[in-house]
């Protein structure tokens, strides 16, 4: 035992310390791994109102037996110098049919500005069924000084939308991309 005690500590301590340091490093990596995991999780569940931000294709397949009310909500981020609103507050739609809506934004400054609209859909159970075919939120929107512009949205509500959903709220937040693009580097 005494022999052991003489020899053991140094090696054993070193190897255990190494393992624990490795565990700490792995957990640091795990923190970063949570980012893609969270994305996948949100895409699958629609958690956080996640909705498609690249075009989706969907065929028309109307289900005339029901109608769904779509409500539009617009927000301008705290520091973004825009006016931004939907041309109408809401519309009744038939699932499986293609619809168009327009949103209008105006640059309130005397300089060129680039905006990014970020969409979000509520309730969560509807977010996977609200399909945007074309949307101004898919790309950055460039505005000249004081420019006002109408921006299109084209969408289909999937007929597989759960029965209990009779209202879908589509919300856009308008962000100034300065902070993001200024840091973009390239």
């Amino acid at each position: 035992m005494n022999d052991n005690a003489e020899k053991r500590p140094d090696n054993a301590n070193r190897s255990l310390t190494g393992k624990l340091l490795l565990l700490a490093a792995v957990m640091f990596g795990f923190g970063y791994l949570l980012v893609p995991l969270y994305d996948v999780f949100c895409e699958i569940t629609g958690f956080g109102g996640r909705t498609n931000t690249v075009a989706e294709s969907s065929r028309e397949n109307p289900d005339f037996s029901r109608s769904v009310r779509i409500e539009f909500v617009t927000t301008v981020n705290e520091y973004a110098p825009w006016e931004f609103a939907a041309d109408r507050d809401s519309m009744e739609v038939t699932p499986g049919k293609m619809y168009y809506a327009t949103f209008t934004a105006r640059n309130l400054t005397e300089g060129k500005k680039v905006a990014q609209a970020v969409p979000s859909v509520a309730p969560i159970s509807a977010s996977g069924h609200f399909k945007k075919i074309e949307c101004f939120c898919f790309t950055n929107q460039e505005f000249q000084a004081n420019e006002e512009r109408a921006m299109p949205l084209q969408f289909i509500v999937d007929p597989d939308l759960p029965e209990f959903v009779d209202t879908i709220t589509l919300q856009y937040t308008f962000y100034d991309t300065v902070r993001v693009s200024a840091n973009d580097g390239s």
Partner: peptide
């Protein structure tokens, strides 16, 4: 503790190095 370190590092890169972990405008 390493997970917290990761989270605050993401804050740091969001602020200074152009990442968008938590900035909605950048996804």
């Amino acid at each position: 503790m390493p997970v917290l370190a990761g989270a605050v590092t993401m804050l740091l890169t969001d602020q200074f190095f152009g990442t968008s972990f938590f900035l909605a405008a950048g996804g």
